[in-house]
Amino acid sequence: MSTQQNAASVAMPTTMRSARGLAHRGIRNIRRLPSAFFPAMAMPVFTMIAFAGTFAAITRLPGFPTDRSVNWFMPLGICFGAAFSGIGLGFSTIRDIETRFYDRLLMSPAPRRSLIIGPLLTAWVRVAILCAFVIPMGMLLGVRFTSGLLGLLTLVVAAIGVSTISLGWGLGLAYRFRDMRGAAVMQLTMFVVLYLSTAQMPLPLMSGWLHDVARINPATNILRLARQGLVRPDSPDYMSWSNTWGGLLAIAGMATLTLVFARRGLDKLDR
């Protein structure tokens, strides 16, 4: 072999191929380091079972949109899990920065956006695994979709949306903090944003300050999107176009913000 000067003959790497290469690594690491992925799987299951069991009685409140508490809390568990899938990749990016593996990626001519799209693809795969595990488990525990496959679809779309938002947020913070302090901030903020919504109660049954906050929190729209195929058909939150686009818009808006936040952080890594 010789190292003749042929750099120019090497094609500029494309975004999608580089991103797929990075995603491949991320997916392989799920298998090789299951302990890092386990919490993202266990947490939604725990949330679903514990919340549905503890707060089972809230379905007896007049106006509650479903009589099955698992129907209400499974989407919450999945959204939490999806958020942690995205954040988990923020964690591993911090680890890569700390071990300087990230320098290797930064020094390659791979388009910068592939460094974000790669982990994004990984996050989506993690969400797919999560849904494939948690939804059947929920159904065993009594979850019933009230609008068939469409309900399943909107739930998965919401989960993918949450993971996209949290990935952007996680990467953005990883690029700025560059150490494990960033991990604490990621978790804390995602946690608080998800909780300050209709996480536990539907809007009409809330009161006071939380009602005001949840009403304008985009996470409420996303949860509505996730739950619309699981509530009673006579509920205003049931599957409808207006409930769908509200959620999609919230996802698009928040994902754009966090992904831009991530990209700007990436561009400033050499400062």
């Binding site: 707060f55 009685a57 809230i58 007896r60 409140l61 996480a199 536990q200 109660m201 049954l205 809330m206 009161s207 006071g208 300050w209 939380l210 009602h211």
Partner: peptide, 11 residues
């Protein structure tokens, strides 16, 4: 704030 109305649940 979330559960303020649940105190009316029987039991």
């Amino acid at each position: 704030s979330s559960f303020s109305k649940t105190t009316a649940i029987p039991g």
